[in-house]
Design a protein around this nucleic acid. Sequence first.
DNA 1: TTCATATTTGGCAATATAGCCAAACAATAG
DNA 2: CTATTGTTTGGCTATATTGCCAAATATGAA
Lengths: 106, 106
Amino acid sequence: MDAKTQAKMEARARILKALAHPTRLFIVEELSRGERPVAELTSLVGLDMSTVSKHLSLLKAVGLIRDERRGVQVFYSLATPCVLNFFGCLESVLEARLQTQIELVG
Amino acid sequence: MDAKTQAKMEARARILKALAHPTRLFIVEELSRGERPVAELTSLVGLDMSTVSKHLSLLKAVGLIRDERRGVQVFYSLATPCVLNFFGCLESVLEARLQTQIELVG
DNA sequence: TTCATATTTGGCAATATAGCCAAACAATAG
DNA sequence: CTATTGTTTGGCTATATTGCCAAATATGAA
């Protein structure tokens, strides 16, 4: 793999990696319904706010979400909604794998 | 996040995690052009064959690729080509982020 | 069987990640 | 100013991941 391709793959991987965590996927899906302040996301997620804040920073760093402070709160929202299209494909991967496993048993 | 949602997000994250590595992204893109034996992928990637083999195992474990032994070689191919649709979105995330950075400078 | 080739697996070292707690920081109210 | 609320950052530990090398396994040829 040449250096240029390597750089391109690393850039893509960075975004996918940001997405590749249960909590962050949940946050993205939640944000697909509209912007949310950190406190609300924290209560939905059910982890320490510092943990949620770090997940949000990571998603923001790669450009998947945006933040906007209004008064004392920081509202996060989806910056690139096209990632929502991933979910359908992920489900079909899961279904296909399930199907394969059924065939192995049957 | 309730247990069921957690499980769903974990399942999705497992697939995305498998994809979220420069080498594995490269492999997936290479396989989009057709099946390839491990040795060929290894020479394209430029890492130890054992390393490439482990990447392939991981991709296969989550159902993204398939393997088929023919004689002494094992050919890998894409099981769920819909993941190729991710790349366009990833590029747009990268472009949007670049645009934001330009705005911050200008 | 033995040999050669293709691939996978085991084991290890280096690095990265996720979570919590505590402390710092930001904005507004009083 | 201080106090309060909302959020982020620092630091730490536990766990996971990636890569290499060496060894094991699998298939086909002789």
